[in-house]
Design a protein around this nucleic acid. Structure first.
Length: 467
DNA sequence: ATCGGCTCGCGCAA
DNA sequence: TGCGCGAAGCCGAT
């Protein structure tokens, strides 16, 4: 039957309150910002059909979302506009309302039979859902749609490394790697009169929000939305995927999918990507395996990390061996020293690093291989590893479209030894893995990368879209 | 081009 | 309790 597509482990009642007589089922959308392959949405449609009522979808848009700026809001709203029209085509009313997400949800919960929400793995996302569950006065059901295998199905603790979580994920893959079909909504909700923001006028909406405008939007490089995510994915699979295994660590090329930012905003489901990759015509077994390893094992290790680690955004979350060895080398002399301001200005002595920093600032993205080098050098050049960690995380979250994601915390942690193993001891890094500029020269065409970034920056100045 | 050594701790086999 | 092995490392030797 259809319900098999929503595995019971994805569904969790967040309170014991009963369902009420109500005008509609409310889907409070927050993490899974899409109209397709969204388990929370399909669950809500089925519950509405069961009760013979209709479905209302609301999204709470808050001005001061932690660390978000104009760049992120623009991409977010482009995506929500896409969701709104896709849901309208299914006869489902969706509104975006300004306010604290739990308050927006609670406002519309008052006329609802029950509330369905999706799931997030960061502390504020959990706090929002807890509050709604406590105050809604009716059943609140959370449906996970952000990972392939739900985090608590995999394990009940923070995993030590990829190798420990890998078999625990693989055990369940077959059961969870299943397409989700859409269920038609019985009673159309487009006639509901609920006011919301006019997403036809994004500039107007953005102008009225009190948002940090210091980081510019990057629509010329990446546009938000499920439609755009799927277009990029199709293009990647058709044109670049067959080279993925060879080129994934070659930043001079762009043979990567760019899915991280769409995943961050929930604009595409990891399930959709995984199923497409499994059946992609181009690409060898190695390409498939290495892509799925990153998409599922590495990404879900990050979800595991933030879900089970209280201080996932602090230096104290690093493994003990790493903190110990970094402390032992804290006062080692540094050949180069930079402040956050100098780093942010891409004004170091290292042209490779500066290019990476410029790619990040100008496009909201950085090739994954360069992200490692970029972070390792911040550790090397700042006067304390703790300050380096805080700086790398702050810059990551400020400039990347995929910043503030569970993957951000795991990736920045990895620079400082998280989910990694010790290597032979050297100055500053201690036993934490080191990376060098000569490694880049040996393993890829790093000058090609620098030229690529120069070209990107040039097209920026001319205002010509690049992709 | 390829290889071994560096180093810790998890998880499994025994 | 012992042992194998691990996200992308580097370096020097062959």
């Amino acid at each position: 039957m259809a319900t098999i597509q929503i595995q019971t482990e994805r569904i969790r009642a967040l309170n014991d309150a009963p369902t009420r007589k109500g005008d509609y089922v409310l889907y409070w959308m927050q993490q899974s910002q899409r109209a397709e392959c969204n388990h929370a949405l399909e669950y809500a449609v089925r519950r509405a059909n069961e009760r013979g009522v209709t479905l209302l979808v609301v999204f709470g848009l808050v001005d001061d979302y932690p660390e978000a700026n104009l760049r992120h809001y623009r991409f977010l709203l482009e995506g929500l506009r896409d969701v709104q029209s896709a849901l309208a085509r299914r006869g489902i009313k969706m509104i975006v309302e300004r306010g604290e997400p739990p308050e927006v949800a609670l406002r519309h919960a008052r006329s609802a039979a029950l509330v369905v929400c999706d799931r997030g793995y960061l502390r504020h996302q959990k706090a929002w859902r807890n509050r709604v569950a406590h105050e809604a006065g009716r059943s609140v059901v959370q449906v996970e749609s952000d990972v392939v295998v739900p985090v608590d199905t995999v394990t009940n603790k923070a995993e030590y490394a990829a190798r420990t979580i890998r078999p625990k994920i693989h055990r369940h893959l077959q059961r969870f790697l299943v397409a989700l079909k859409t269920t038609p909504l019985g009673r159309d909700s487009l006639g509901l009169r609920v006011p919301g923001l006019d997403l036809g006028d994004l500039d107007g909406v953005l102008a009225r929000l009190t948002v940090d405008g210091s980081v510019t939007p990057v629509s010329a490089h990446f546009r938000g939305g499920t439609t755009e995510a799927k277009r990029l994915l199709r293009q990647f699979l058709a044109q670049r995927f067959s080279r993925y295994g060879i080129n994934r660590n070659r930043p001079e090329n762009d043979d990567v999918s760019h899915m991280s930012m769409y995943l961050h905003f929930g604009q595409i489901s990891p399930l959709t990507i995984a199923l497409e990759v499994q059946t992609a015509a181009r690409g060898s077994r190695t390409d498939r395996e290495s892509y799925l390893e990153e998409l599922i094992v590495r990404r879900e290790l990050a979800a595991n990390f933030t879900n089970f680690t209280r201080d996932y955004d602090r230096f104290s979350s690093l493994p003990q061996w790493a903190r110990r060895t970094l402390a032992e080398h804290q006062s080692d002399p540094r050949e180069h020293r930079y402040t956050r301001r100098e780093l942010e200005a891409a004004a170091t002595h290292d042209p490779y690093w500066n290019a990476a920093m410029r790619e990040m600032k100008h496009t909201g993205f950085m090739h994954n291989y360069m992200r490692m080098y970029w972070g390792k050098k911040i550790l090397e050049w700042m006067d304390s590893p703790k300050r380096a960690y805080e700086t790398a995380l702050a810059l990551n979250n400020k400039y990347f479209l995929d910043g503030r994601d569970p993957a951000s915390y795991a990736n920045v942690g990895w620079i400082f030894g998280l989910h990694d193993r010790p290597w032979f001891e050297r100055p500053i890094y201690g036993k934490v893995r080191y990376m060098s500029g000569s490694g880049l020269e040996r393993k890829c065409d790093i000058d090609g990368y620098v030229r690529k970034v120069e070209a990107l920056t040039r097209t920026d100045a001319e205002g010509t879209p690049k992709r």
